[in-house]
Nucleic acid binder design. Sequence first.
DNA 1: AATGAATGAGCGTTCATTCAT
DNA 2: CATGAATGAACGCTCATTCAT
Lengths: 187, 187, 187, 187
Amino acid sequence: MKHSAVRQTIIDTASDLFYNNGYNLTGINEVIKEAGIAKATLYSHFKSKDELCSAYLQHKHGTFLEAFDTYVNDVPKGKKRITAIFDFLKEFYESEGFNGCWCINTISEIPKEKIELRTEIKNQKNEFRDVLLNIIKDSLPELKPKKKKELANQIYLLYEGAVSESFLHGEVWPIDSAQSICKILLA
Amino acid sequence: MKHSAVRQTIIDTASDLFYNNGYNLTGINEVIKEAGIAKATLYSHFKSKDELCSAYLQHKHGTFLEAFDTYVNDVPKGKKRITAIFDFLKEFYESEGFNGCWCINTISEIPKEKIELRTEIKNQKNEFRDVLLNIIKDSLPELKPKKKKELANQIYLLYEGAVSESFLHGEVWPIDSAQSICKILLA
Amino acid sequence: MKHSAVRQTIIDTASDLFYNNGYNLTGINEVIKEAGIAKATLYSHFKSKDELCSAYLQHKHGTFLEAFDTYVNDVPKGKKRITAIFDFLKEFYESEGFNGCWCINTISEIPKEKIELRTEIKNQKNEFRDVLLNIIKDSLPELKPKKKKELANQIYLLYEGAVSESFLHGEVWPIDSAQSICKILLA
Amino acid sequence: MKHSAVRQTIIDTASDLFYNNGYNLTGINEVIKEAGIAKATLYSHFKSKDELCSAYLQHKHGTFLEAFDTYVNDVPKGKKRITAIFDFLKEFYESEGFNGCWCINTISEIPKEKIELRTEIKNQKNEFRDVLLNIIKDSLPELKPKKKKELANQIYLLYEGAVSESFLHGEVWPIDSAQSICKILLA
DNA sequence: AATGAATGAGCGTTCATTCAT
DNA sequence: CATGAATGAACGCTCATTCAT
């Protein structure tokens, strides 16, 4: 197996385990056993569990953004596309293995001193806000720049709240609620 | 020192440590050292770390609800009181030691099998929604019952999102954003 | 409750727990909880768990000897009475809560240095051998003294083996086997 | 040191300690200190103390059976070989570190729920009975099968009783007594 | 590049016992 | 005389990481 293929196997395996069972609750031994590799192999690809955590976050982020873009861009521009953001979330919520937001989950598990991981998480969220802003720019070009940014932040806030709360309660209403608020904001 | 006083010392100490540094990242040894008690003393008051976790969650919830009620009920009834919810949050955010939501933080740290803790967390959130609903009933009696409940859920969602996001970014804008949306909903 | 009554309650409770669940596996807390007394009350009656262990052994021994005497002396003198020893054991084996020999069980659980407990156990066994010897003297007066003693030791050995092995296997055959050997010895 | 060598070192060390000082009275810390290994090393070889206990029992059993076979098969076939069983036991009793029967000792120390260990112990005893039966088959082929099995059980019972009692009293007479009974049975 | 045995530090928990009240 | 809160020491066990091969 190619070097990079092993690396990807590790990331995929770790991602599933970290996301499903929690970062601290998943031991290195579990990862290597599931990935079918030796312990030192893991440490030759990632110099610490934290570094693997970083790779996990990036992997989830990349996969998410791709799925998100694909879904949303498939919807006609305009307000429809904006509210489709929450349709996407509903699908995400209903998909097998939904476990809330990896960023929120992970930030609770790591000590404050681990600046690099916390920065990674902030960056992801900021990038997601940019993605939302671009969708707005595309879909609602008539809005003033300031208004666009404000709306992006609002939708971001609703989205994040809906992820957390639908997960916490195990119920879909927070997503519906977020979407209904979104429609009001667009009115 | 009275028995119940020791118990409260343990809860206070554990609460600070769990909330500031994380539940799993805080060892029992740290709690007893900080509380100045022996390990067996802790275990005579709480039969497991999980039980102490439960006490921690309840302590935070109780303290929070009291401060919340005091603050909000001090504001004249009506829309003012509703939007004051986010003024309270801003004070909470700016207070020393703000570390986001103990529920969201804790639920990320515990395995799925720990039903009791997860139930405790859900109950707290539902109770908070009820508190919001009662404020609405008090402040906006003219609304239809269904509308009241819907509004309570919306404000709950905004509040929760604002807590998480202000903490994650270390910035106040999510609270402002939530409040501005709230005002729109009340318009 | 009278002082001595409390003491007896403790001994009875501890005896049941030590015998059924093992000496080391039974904690002081379990004893006091079951006996319905305070911890310091126990320690006012027994200055250590070892001392309670001693009382437990003596209690079992006394109860046993009484039941044994009653049973055996009810059988007509002669060889019948000797072999009835194993009928008694069969009843003991079949009684609820049979858990082998408290001496053998306990001696495995305590460190070699605890001479007092080990002596207590040896004394019990020697006393039991004397009891057997007396039964033989009573039942088979025609035997020579040396033969009596030899027979007592043999029956003792068979009895002890039968207790241990019936318990270990959870089967009655070792008692039958012991009895059949006994009959040969008497022939 | 080879992997399997470390494993054997652990078993040897644990066996000495468990057998001499008792299973519950011997902590894992004592085992690793004596074996000169790290705690996690022990747990990489045995996933629990119980599993180590199982290895200890098997080790004692194996060593015992080998010594037993060697000794007994060195004696000419016939009644001599049968009674030599107790000569072997006398040597065992007189050997340094004799501490009774590991099975009897261990079964007193473990809770009833530990079925696996209790089964292991029963199996060892049954295997020993089979060994005795085979010696009888070899040595006294003229006996009827039923008689052979009966005799095996009787000798087993005498042997077990003699082990326990010689250990308990610290005296050799139970072995002599058992052997004398054995001779009667063979007469 | 890959292995897996070995580690030191720490985990949550339980014990028999003491002592101020 | 009885209480029960508090203790220090030890328990069995798991962790992320290293290093000789």
